[in-house]
Amino acid sequence: MRAGIKESTRWIEGYARLAELSASLPDTRLVYVADREADIIELMRTARDLGEPVDWLVRSQHHRALPHGERLWSAVMADKPVGELHFTMASRHGRKAREVHQQIRVKSVTLADGRGGELSASCVIATEADPPVGVTPVEWRLLTNRPIKDFNDAAQLIDWYRARWEIEMFFHVLKNGCKVEALQLASIDKLERALAVYLVVAWRIARLMRLGRSCPDLDVELLSRPRTEQARGAPVYPARSAPHPGPLPAGEREHGLRTSKLPAGRRERMIPASLAFPGEVMHGATRAPRRV
């Protein structure tokens, strides 16, 4: 963070940069997705003043006052649910995977813009129904510039927000796996070249991590090329590698670099094709939310 700059500025700058990019992508929908820290009226006002060239979707942090004396979340929760969502929440941080059933409520609202005017927004609140005893219910309160006509529109916005976790995992790998913050390069030029490489590596590793969790029984051979297809360069297999006895589930070699869980006779160090080659071998599958 630059010295003397408010942290909220980075959210506004991020949106402005996407707005500049949108001019060169007229046939592409760009969506600015952010967590609670981006629930600032300056961001929404900036988007409105620019003509909203990029859609925005943020997690609501403030129980804002509405023009007629109501409060934002209370006004939305006073309406009846427009539908329900069912999905599987993945395990993480010591929590087991579990099924989640949410009720969805939506409302179009008018917010004060902080300068004596008003701006229009839509609010979506997804609340978990009947969570397990002792478990914190899964609840999301979202604000967006997009109009919500029906349940399908609301479900799409929730899908977009849930995808934000993939971005969190990507930066976790980039910072803690690739250790980019420990780089001690003398110039911006060198730093940019290093990041160009690390960003690709981090994305590939994050993808393998997701496959290891969402498809634990996936055959690892689908993600790793045989020796004859390896790219030229440093050898990947040791000179005397014993033949492997059979396929190994991807969940046992999440990054494709572990050897501790390999059965006897299978100690080669394989590099996944998604790291060694530009072409994709396969696409991962996840369980999509079921709409009721």
Rank of each mutant, 00 (worst) to 15 (best):
E118Q: 15
V292Y: 14
V135I: 15
A285P: 01
D113W: 00
T136H: 13
K107V: 02
E229P: 04
R162E: 11
C215S: 14
S274N: 10
I158P: 06
A264E: 12
E42Q: 11
G177D: 06
V76T: 06
R258I: 04
F171G: 10
A38M: 04
R164Q: 11
K179F: 10
S60V: 06
F171A: 11
A23K: 08
R105I: 02
R253L: 10
P238D: 13
V201S: 03
R146A: 11
A194W: 02
E118I: 07
A276G: 14
Q184E: 13
G212Y: 00
V133F: 09
E280H: 12
G69T: 03
R2F: 00
G134E: 09
Y32Q: 01
R36P: 00
G83V: 03
T46S: 08
A16Y: 10
I40L: 08
F87M: 09
G256L: 01
H86I: 09
D55R: 06
S241L: 11
A34I: 00
H93C: 07
A97T: 04
A250L: 13
E13A: 15
M89K: 15
L66G: 01
D217F: 02
A154Q: 12
R17G: 04
A78L: 06
N145Y: 07
V76W: 05
I205H: 07
R141K: 14
R162S: 06
A196E: 10
A155D: 09
R258T: 12
R267A: 12
L218Q: 00
I104C: 04
E139D: 14
A242S: 12
D189H: 12
H101V: 08
G134V: 05
G251W: 03
W160T: 05
R267Q: 15
Y32H: 06
R227E: 13
D55A: 12
R225F: 06
R71M: 08
L248D: 00
I188V: 12
N152D: 15
P131W: 02
A129Q: 15
I158L: 15
Q230A: 13
V58K: 01
A47G: 06
G279Q: 12
V31W: 01
C123Q: 04
E37H: 03
E13Q: 14
G117L: 03
W140T: 02
H93K: 15
H172R: 15
D79G: 15
P216R: 09
V236G: 09
P81L: 05
A194S: 08
I104H: 03
K96F: 04
S24W: 12
V135M: 11
G246D: 05
M89T: 05
A16S: 11
E37N: 03
K107E: 05
G83Y: 02
K261V: 05
R232G: 09
R207K: 13
E70L: 10
P132R: 08
I167G: 07
P137M: 05
T127L: 08
I205K: 07
L248T: 03
P249V: 02
D150G: 14
A206H: 08
A16I: 10
T110Y: 04
S214T: 13
P235R: 14
D217G: 11
